[in-house]
């Protein structure tokens, strides 16, 4: 079903709020020299993009578990392909 402008706005506000929290968490826990608001929603986390490494991944997984109570395991590596994918994973696990 296509959303009305109201529905689209309401949903986007909640989603953007969660994205902002995750961006802030990334910057804080991984001590990145990046303005969290400058991280794009579809920005890749590895390789191109934030250029995290596998050691950062473990830290990121722990941060997500501490903050959102959501675990990230080896079965969830698809969730680490972009910030949006990670937020999907958190949203999905909390729903």
């Amino acid at each position: 079903m296509v959303m009305t402008l109201d529905e689209a706005t309401r949903r986007a506000t909640a989603r953007q709020d969660l994205c902002s929290q995750v961006k802030q968490l990334l910057v804080d826990r991984l001590s990145l020299d990046v303005d969290p608001q400058a991280i794009g929603d579809d920005q890749p986390l590895f390789g191109r993009g934030l250029e995290l490494d596998s050691i950062d991944t473990l830290e990121l997984a722990m941060a997500v578990e501490d903050t959102f109570g959501v675990t990230v395991t080896d079965d969830d590596t698809q969730s680490l392909l972009s910030l949006n994918r990670l937020v999907d994973h958190i949203e999905g696990a909390r729903a």
């Binding site: 596998s54 991944t57 997984a61 080896d74």
Partner: peptide
């Protein structure tokens, strides 16, 4: 031992002498 991901495991460690904590560290 803590969470593991991508072939790495996080480890919480501490050292104490008597009742006093002398060191804490987190390793992967």
């Amino acid at each position: 031992s803590g969470p593991r991901l991508g072939g790495l495991i996080s480890v919480n460690g501490q050292a104490s002498v008597g009742r006093e904590l002398v060191m804490t560290a987190r390793l992967a």
